[in-house]
Design a protein around this nucleic acid. Structure first.
Length: 286
DNA sequence: GCTGTAACCTGTCGGC
DNA sequence: TGCCGACAGGTTACAG
């Protein structure tokens, strides 16, 4: 699913209906996501006020005034959608009024102060939720590498992460310990922009090309967030709207199409690496 | 310790 | 129209 831009888009959509507001009631309809939901989650969320809504890598983090933080991961197919009751005052980021009927894969529903309803839907149940003491580091966050849009991510940091690695650069960029938040789509896109072949050994990429890759990652992620993420099968913004970055894909999902780099003339190819599809241009990615 | 692969679960799409 | 297999944005466990 959702890679960093999609999760950030969802976070921005949820912020106006969550931050500063109380969760009046939490409804757990199915407790077995990737792991069982935390004990008494509905009781622990009910009545809590959301102090802040942040993001680390692909995880959403809601700090509550109960001293706990709600961690949410959307897995491959998870969605968080907002609905407002009929007749409610319109809010930024929410364009539809009226609560839709609860769906088969709506696993958790948060009834918010102000009338908004936030629904966590995840058909494949690869997603996760947990509660942990605010200020502590959750085990799932402990080993994460630098945020690709943060100040600590630069050529030197990436070079340190790749040093000595014999795995393909594509696999290394998907390793959340090296850089956190990238997934299959944006790794393919960033490697295309940087002109780096996805099968190249990670530890053998020259420093100037690593710098170029860092720049490509920042640009691709930044542009994707501005476009509201990419909507393929499952992703929607919290408002229910689609994202539009898929219109800008240069390599991902374009097997057989001409490489869009001016003057290249190559063709986008699809290969399988570590069981995942990789799209690249063999002519201009070396 | 590092790397590659299978598995988790469900929906969608294309081919026959 | 219906069935079947391939594939899908992530992450973990395990084998080599």
């Amino acid at each position: 699913m959702p890679e960093l831009p999609e999760v950030e888009t969802v976070r921005r959509g949820l912020e106006p209906v969550m931050v500063g507001r109380r969760i009046l009631r939490a409804e757990v309809r199915r407790p077995d996501l990737r792991w069982p939901l935390p004990e008494r989650m509905a009781e622990r969320l009910g009545g809590a006020r959301v102090r802040a809504l942040g993001r680390r890598s692909k995880y959403l983090l809601a700090d509550l005034d109960t001293g706990e933080t709600l961690l949410v991961h959307l897995g491959m197919s998870g969605r968080m959608t907002i609905s407002l009751p009929e007749g409610a005052e319109r809010m930024p980021g929410v364009f539809a009024l009226g609560h839709p009927p609860v769906g088969k894969h709506d696993h958790v529903v948060l009834h918010m102060e102000g009338g908004a309803r936030i629904t966590y839907n995840d058909a494949r149940r690869f997603g996760a939720m947990d509660l942990f003491p605010t200020g502590q580091t959750h085990p799932l966050l402990a080993g994460l590498g630098p945020e690709p849009l943060g100040n600590s991510f630069d050529g030197a940091a990436l070079a340190r992460g790749l040093a000595g690695r014999t795995m393909p650069i594509k696999a290394a960029m998907l390793d959340q310990r090296i850089v956190a938040g990238l997934g299959n789509i944006y790794v393919c896109e960033a490697l295309w922009h940087a002109g780096i072949h996805p099968a190249r050994r990670a530890g053998r990429i020259a420093r100037p090309r690593i710098e170029r890759l860092v720049q490509a990652i920042r640009e691709v992620l930044g542009e994707a967030i501005e476009a509201g993420g990419s909507s393929l099968r499952d992703h929607r913004q919290a408002s229910g709207e689609m994202g539009y970055f898929q219109m800008n894909f240069k390599a991902y999902g374009r097997a057989g199409a001409p490489c869009p780099r001016p003057g290249c003339g190559g063709t986008i190819r699809r290969i399988t690496q570590a069981g995942r599809s990789t799209f690249y241009c063999a002519a201009c990615q070396r």
